[in-house]
Structures are given as C-alpha cells and as structure tokens.
C-alpha cells in the first residue's frame, strides 16, 4: 500500500514541479511574434497586381493565413513560395500557372508618350499611384515607384503602355556567380569567364 502511495505522491510531486517549470518558461520565454498576416505580407512582393485574385498583397496575405494556397503569386515566383512555405511550415508548391507565370526579370511600365491621349485610365488603374498626368495631358510612369504589375496595360485605349525589363545600370551591375566546380570540366581553364 505504502509503495503505491509513494509512487503516486512522487509522480504528483514531479508533475507539479515540471508543470511549474513549464509554466514559468512559457511566461519567461514567450515569443513575441508579429501576427502571421503581417509576416506573410512582408514576404509578398507588394506589387499589388491582383494576379492572385485578391485586391492587393495584404488581402492575399490574409487569405493565405486563412488557408489559401501559397502558389498564386507570379511576381514573387518560386523564391516567395519557398519563403512562404518556410514561414508556414507547409510544402512548397510549384507556381499555379492559372495566375500567370513568373517573369525572368523585373519589369517596369513605360508609356510611349507620343501616343498617349491623356485619358487618365491608366492613372486610375495604377495601384501604386505611379503614373503621373492629368486629363488630356501626356502621362508618364514614375519608374522608381512602378512595380511592373501590368494593371495599366489593359485599360489603355490606345495601347501605348509597354512593360519592359528593368535595365541593369552601373549601380546595379554585379559579378555573376561563378560556375560551381562540379559543373566545370577539366578543360575549363579560367575562373567563371564572364560572358
């Protein structure tokens, strides 16, 4: 009898102690995290292009937090999907082609200014307010603010807006990654000769 009693008491005591330790730890080492939506939002590219089917990146972030698939963001592409998968602890899916394909390089909208009739339709469509102009005045894109979301292309009545890849400048140019040793063959002398 006493053996059982001792066992019960011991276990009870242990559980009380461990419970207290755990409780203390949960208070003392509490992780103050951002709400998950903000974390997701910070990973999205903020092009506000709506290709995911939501009116902007934050709504999509909310939808993801609510369980929507993470592979609907073509501007972010595979890297964003990977980052989201990492954050949410889910499997990284390939980009959903239904929402568009990932572009090889960053794009920026350019208005062929000679053809612009000043209809302001693109200004209304631009989620960034990155198009400058007034009614019957020529419009122009503030390239620094343009996210290349392509929402201004469709409304243009005279099709004078193009999306062009962002050009490399002296400031953004950098050396490319050298070929990895495993990819070289014996006759490749020279270190990653630039093309």
């Amino acid at each position: 009898m006493s053996i059982i009693l001792i066992a019960v008491l011991t276990l009870t005591g242990l559980s009380i102690i461990f419970g207290a330790v755990l409780g203390f730890a949960s208070v003392r080492f509490r992780v103050e995290g951002n709400p998950i939506v903000d974390q997701i939002d910070s990973l999205l590219p903020q092009t506000q292009c709506g290709q995911c089917g939501h009116p902007g990146c934050h709504p999509y972030a909310e939808a993801i937090a609510g369980g929507e698939a993470i592979n609907k963001c073509p501007p972010g592409g595979e890297s964003t999907i990977a980052a989201l998968a990492d954050l949410l602890g889910v499997e990284a899916l390939p980009l959903d082609g239904e929402h568009g394909s990932e572009k090889a390089s960053k794009m920026v909208a350019v208005i062929r200014e000679a053809e612009c009739i000043g209809c302001t339709k693109c200004i209304q469509a631009c989620p960034m307010d990155a198009i400058l102009g007034a009614a019957k005045q020529m419009h122009t894109v503030i390239a620094d603010e343009c996210t290349g979301c392509d929402l201004c292309i469709e409304p243009c009545p005279v099709d004078c807006i193009d999306l062009v890849p962002v050009a490399t400048t002296l400031q953004t140019w950098h050396w490319q990654q050298p070929l990895s040793p495993e990819k070289l063959i014996a006759t490749d002398a020279g270190r990653g000769i630039a093309a």
Partner: peptide, 21 residues
Amino acid sequence: KGEIRIEKADKVKSERAKQRF
C-alpha cells in the same frame, strides 16, 4: 554582395509600394 544589395533595395521598394498602395 550584389545580390544582397539588390534584395535590400527590393525590400525597401516593396515596403514603399505597400505604403503607397
């Protein structure tokens, strides 16, 4: 270094894009 700089510039830009939006 170049990639990190671009990544950082993108981050700044996307933050600004978010604010503008």
